Amino acid sequence: MVDKIAYPVQLIQPDGRRVFRPDYTSLVRDIGPDQLRGLYEDLVVARRMDVEAVALQRQGELGLWAPMLGQEAAQVGSARALRPDDYAFISYREHAVAYCRGVDPGVMTRMWRGCAHCAWDPSSVNVTNPAIVVGSQGLHATGYAMGAHLDGAEIATIAYFGDGATSQGDLAEALGFSMSFNAPVVFFCQNNQFAISEPVRLQSPVPIAQRAAGYGMPALRVDGNDVLAVLAVTRQATQRAREGSGPTFIEAITYRMGPHTTSDDPTRYRAAAETEIWKARDPIDRMRRLLDREGLLDDTFLAGVQATADDVAARLRSGTIGAPDPEPLDLFEHVYSTDHPLIDEEREQYAAYLAGFAGIEEALS
């Protein structure tokens, strides 16, 4: 049997050729020409959406953005493996996951613009809003999974995080609890090689997936730039969760080709030659080569993909610029599910503070 830790699962080579892996190829046997084209469209749309958001930040329309350039396959493949009633707990970079789960691009940037506590209603699409606290979503996913298991729901939850989050205590607690309670959760690590400026080799001398062994948890590594392989392994892991076999750890090996966030300069800590190596493994180019090899590319299809991508980007831009500015006192709404005396006191104090500017505004007008 192939060692799933030492040899990451791969179904598409960088040049577009297929890899025959009976144990995983069987999991994506239903992915025919239309589905392959759909996955390619998702990848292209995700990147176009990301490029638009970066441009909006540079133009002063967003306070911050965490680019996902290069990580599209890890996100699209895993998100498309989920069923509608599964629940995804994301960090701050899973924009493609949100898109694939049905989040409206027009509201996707509201939190990053600073005009709302959150961007969308999680219960409407079964995906959380971005979690800025690194590693916290692992605990959230585990708790939700435990509750769903107790309620008898045959669903899977999935927690997305990066290689840097694996050094957080929150995630260690989540791994331990999930095994103790056989929680139906998938831990999906996007190893993009850098925790901001720290290369993964300084953080872990062994493959990150090996950490799961300390909890007795099954784990595997997958080529995170291979959308079909990611789809296959995530389908397998989510099925294990739904049938009551417990959690699984997936390490998707990918690369962040852009900055950590729009406030970062990656040229200060990594060599251009390294980035060039990973560009040759670009997930979109890989899928395009597969489609070309299998006679699934034509000008009409490519034009349609580009039109869809441009439309999504336009919706994201118009939704960002047109997002309404909240009233100052809205800051205190939706903090707790019920009234809270501390919040009430702070609201009153802030209202009094704002009232102090009334006379000044009238005088200036």
Rank of each mutant, 00 (worst) to 15 (best):
M1Q: 05
D3V: 08
K4S: 13
K4A: 14
Y7D: 14
P8F: 06
G16I: 03
T25V: 13
L27S: 00
V28T: 15
D30N: 11
D34Y: 01
D42I: 01
D42N: 11
V45T: 13
A53W: 04
A53V: 06
Q57Y: 02
G60R: 02
G63K: 05
A66G: 11
M68Q: 12
G70D: 07
A74H: 05
Q75K: 02
R80Y: 03
R80A: 09
D86F: 04
R93Y: 12
A98C: 12
A98Y: 02
Y99S: 03
C100A: 13
R101F: 08
V107R: 04
M108C: 01
W112G: 00
A116K: 07
A119Q: 09
A119R: 00
D121Y: 06
D121K: 14
S124E: 10
A131I: 10
V133W: 01
G135H: 07
S136N: 07
Y144L: 04
Y144I: 05
A145R: 00
A148K: 13
H149M: 14
E154H: 14
E154V: 04
E154N: 11
A156M: 07
T157E: 11
T157M: 11
I158H: 07
A165V: 08
A165K: 03
S167H: 06
A172S: 10
E173A: 06
A183L: 04
V185P: 07
F188T: 05
N192Q: 11
Q193I: 02
Q193K: 15
S204E: 01
V206K: 09
A209N: 06
P218W: 13
L220F: 13
V230G: 11
V233M: 10
T238S: 14
Q239V: 01
S245N: 11
F249W: 10
G258N: 12
P259Q: 05
T261A: 13
R268Q: 15
A280K: 13
D285S: 14
M287N: 14
L290E: 09
G295F: 12
L297I: 15
D298Y: 08
Q306I: 01
D311H: 10
L316W: 00
S318G: 00
E327H: 15
F332H: 04
V335N: 02
V335Q: 13
Y336D: 07
Y336G: 08
S337C: 07
S337K: 15
H340Y: 12
L342P: 00
L342T: 08
I343S: 04
L354W: 07
A355D: 14
I360P: 00
I360D: 14
E361A: 13
E361K: 08
E361W: 07
E362W: 02
